[in-house]
Design a protein around this nucleic acid. Sequence first.
DNA 1: GATGAATGAGCCTTCATTCAT
DNA 2: AATGAATGAAGGCTCATTCAT
Lengths: 211, 211, 211, 211
Amino acid sequence: MEWNDKQKKILDIAEELFAINGFDGTSIRQISKAADINVAMISYYFGSKQKLLQAIVAYRNTGFREEFEDIIVTELSYLEKLDQIVSLVISRIHKNRRIYKIIHFLHSNNEHNFDFEIYNAQKKENFKTLKDFITNGQKEGSFVEGVDYLLFASNLRGAYFSLYFNKSLFMSVLDLKDDTGFEKYIFSNLIPHVQRTARAVLTYNPKKNKK
Amino acid sequence: MEWNDKQKKILDIAEELFAINGFDGTSIRQISKAADINVAMISYYFGSKQKLLQAIVAYRNTGFREEFEDIIVTELSYLEKLDQIVSLVISRIHKNRRIYKIIHFLHSNNEHNFDFEIYNAQKKENFKTLKDFITNGQKEGSFVEGVDYLLFASNLRGAYFSLYFNKSLFMSVLDLKDDTGFEKYIFSNLIPHVQRTARAVLTYNPKKNKK
Amino acid sequence: MEWNDKQKKILDIAEELFAINGFDGTSIRQISKAADINVAMISYYFGSKQKLLQAIVAYRNTGFREEFEDIIVTELSYLEKLDQIVSLVISRIHKNRRIYKIIHFLHSNNEHNFDFEIYNAQKKENFKTLKDFITNGQKEGSFVEGVDYLLFASNLRGAYFSLYFNKSLFMSVLDLKDDTGFEKYIFSNLIPHVQRTARAVLTYNPKKNKK
Amino acid sequence: MEWNDKQKKILDIAEELFAINGFDGTSIRQISKAADINVAMISYYFGSKQKLLQAIVAYRNTGFREEFEDIIVTELSYLEKLDQIVSLVISRIHKNRRIYKIIHFLHSNNEHNFDFEIYNAQKKENFKTLKDFITNGQKEGSFVEGVDYLLFASNLRGAYFSLYFNKSLFMSVLDLKDDTGFEKYIFSNLIPHVQRTARAVLTYNPKKNKK
DNA sequence: GATGAATGAGCCTTCATTCAT
DNA sequence: AATGAATGAAGGCTCATTCAT
C-alpha cells in the first residue's frame, strides 16, 4: 500500500497520539487537528479509526530480516555477532517503541478485533532467524546448549520494555532530564548491559554452579 | 483504606476491564453492569473513574518487601536465594499483570494526570532491596562486580512483560490452548529460564570472553 | 410554622445559596454540606427542595406593615414621613435582597409551580398602605394629584433593584471595594437620591413645565 | 459575529428558555428539542452552553447609542428630548427584557464565570451618553444641579424591572389578561409615569421644599 | 477529492429522592 | 430522629461516522 504525503502525515501523527493516549484515548478529531486535515478525511482515507491503526502497523513493517542478514554474513565471531544483533534488536524496538506500545496493549485481548496476522507473521519469521543463528552457534561450539531461543529473545526485548514502560520512574531514579537523556541511556547503558547478559546466558554452564 | 465486599467486587472487575480494554476503553457503565451495581455507586464509592483507578493500584499495593525478606533470612546460598527471588518477582508480576498492564500504559505519558507517587515509591523501595541483596552477594564473593542492578531488575521483569504483551503470538507459537496453559508455561519454562539468566549474569566474567 | 435551630440554619444557608446560584443552580448537597447536615435531612424536614424554597419565603415574612404604621403616627410632615418611608422601603428590600432575587426570578414564569399567594397577598397589603398614605397627603395638600401610586412604588423599589442586579457593574463604575462599600453606597447615596425623587414626583406640577 | 438562520433560531429559543427557567434550569436538550435541532449541534455551533449564553448577549448587542444620538440632534427642547430618551430606554429594556432577566440573575454573583465585559462596556458607554446629555442640560439651564446621573439612570431602568419582576402580581392587581395587556400598560402608563418622574427630578429644587 | 454540517449513541458525573436501619 | 447507601434519571459534552454539496 502506497500512501501520499497527507496520508503519511496522518499515519505519523496518529501513531504518536495512539502511543501517548491510547487507541480509545485518541479521537480522530485530535488527529485531524494535529495533522491540520479535515476530520472526515480520516474516515475517507482509511475507512475507519480501526483501519487507520492497522495501516500504521503495516506502515512500520520494514525489513528487520535484511539488517539481520547483513550481520550474519560478516566475518565476525559469534559473540561479536551476538553483540551486534542485540544492538540491532534494541535499536529497532526503540525506533518503533510507539507502535509496540500500541500493539502490546491490544495484543493480549482483542476487544477491537484487530488483525495481528501481518505483525505475528513477521515476528515469527524473526524468531526463526534468531533460532537459526543460535543453533548454528551451538553447533559451532560458541554457544552452550539448553537455551530456549524464544525466552532468550523475550529477555532481550523485555529489558527495553521494562524500562520504557516505567519511563518516568526510571527517569526520576536515573536523574534523566528529557527524552534525549533517556535515549542516551538506552544506547550507552542498556545495550551494553543486554549484550553482557546475552553473552552470559549463551556461554553459561549451569552444571558448574549447582549451588 | 478498607473496602467492603461490594467495593472489592468493583475493584476486581474494574481492574480486569481496564487491563483488557484500557482506561479510556472501559466505561463505568461496563464496570457497573459487570459488577451488577448501579452506575452512580462508582462515583459514590470512589469519587470518579480516575480515582477508581488510583484505588485499584493502591488495592494491589501489598508487601512485596516482606516476602523478599523471608527469602533473605533463610540459610540458603546466594545463588539459591537468587532463584527464589526470581521466582517471587515473576510470580508477583504475573499475579498483578493486569494492574501492570494498566500502569505501563499510563506511565510513559500522563494525559490523565494520574498520580504515580505510591507506585513509584514502592518500586524504588523494591529496587533498593534488590540492590542490597546484590551488593551483599558481591561482597561475599558469590556475584561478580560490574552488574547494574537497575538494568538487571529490568531484565528479570522484562522477560515476563515481553511474553505477556505478545501473549496471543506466543500462545500461537507455543501451541498453548488457554490462560491456564500460558500460566503453566510461565512457571515451568519462563521462571527457570530467568533463573538461569540471573545466575549467568551475576556469575559471568566478561573478561574471560573477550571474543 | 416554627423552626428549630437546625432548620433555621438550613433556611439561612439555602436562602443565600439560592440567591447566589439560583434554584436550579443550587443542589441540596451543597446546602447540606454548607449547613453540615445530612443530605437526607432536607427532604426529611421540608419534604422537597421545592417546599424548602416556599419555607424560605414564608420564613422572611414579617411585619412591614407595623414599621410603616410607626412612621405614619408620628407628628412629622408628609414630606418628612415620605423620607422615612423611602428609607424604610429600601432598607427592607436591601435586608431581604436575597429572597427578592429568588422571587423575582421565579415570578414572571412559573415553571416550578411555586405558590406566590402569601407573597402576593403581603405585597398587595403594602400597596394599599402606601396608597392610603399618598391619598391622605393629596387631600391634605402636601402631594400633587395625578400620581399613580403603583408606579410610584415601582419606582422606589426599582431604583434599588436596578443597582443590585447590576452590582458588579456599579461596583466597578463607583470603585466600591466590597459588599460593605456597596451597602454604604445604598444608605449614603441611593436612599437620599430616592428621597429626593419621591419628593420631586409628589410635588411636581407637570402643567408648569409644558415644554 | 454573523449567525445563520438555524443558529438564530437557537439563539432566540435559548434566550426565551433561559429567561423562563434560568440558565441552570434550562437544559441544552430542552433547547435542542424546542428548536428541533440535534443536541450536539449546540456544542458544535457555540462550543458550550456557557458560550451559547455569551452569544445571546452579544446577539442582542445593538446600537442603543445610535438611536440615542438621533434624539439628541433634533430641535426639541431638553425636556422633550428627555421624554423621548425615557421612551427609548424603557422600550429597549422591554424588548430585551429576557436577556436582562438572565443577566440580572447572573450579575451579582458569578458562579458560572460568565464574561460580562461586553455587556459592562456597553452599559458604561450608555451611562456616559446619558451623563453628557444631563450635563449639557444643566449648563443650558434646563435641568437643576445636584442630580446623580447614575442613580437617575437606575431609577429610569428600575421602574420597568420592578414591574417586570413582579409581573404576575401586577397583572393580578391591574387586571391585565395577558402579555399584550402587560405590554400596553408599559407603553400607556409606565412610560408616561417615568417621563413625569424624570422631568420632576431634573427640575425639582430641593431647597424650596425643606419640609 | 474534499469539506462543513449533521447525527445518534455514548461518555462521566451529579441530581433529588427514597430506602433500610 | 437521623443517616449512609442506593437509585434511576438527567445533566453537558464528545464521539466516530455519514451526509450533502
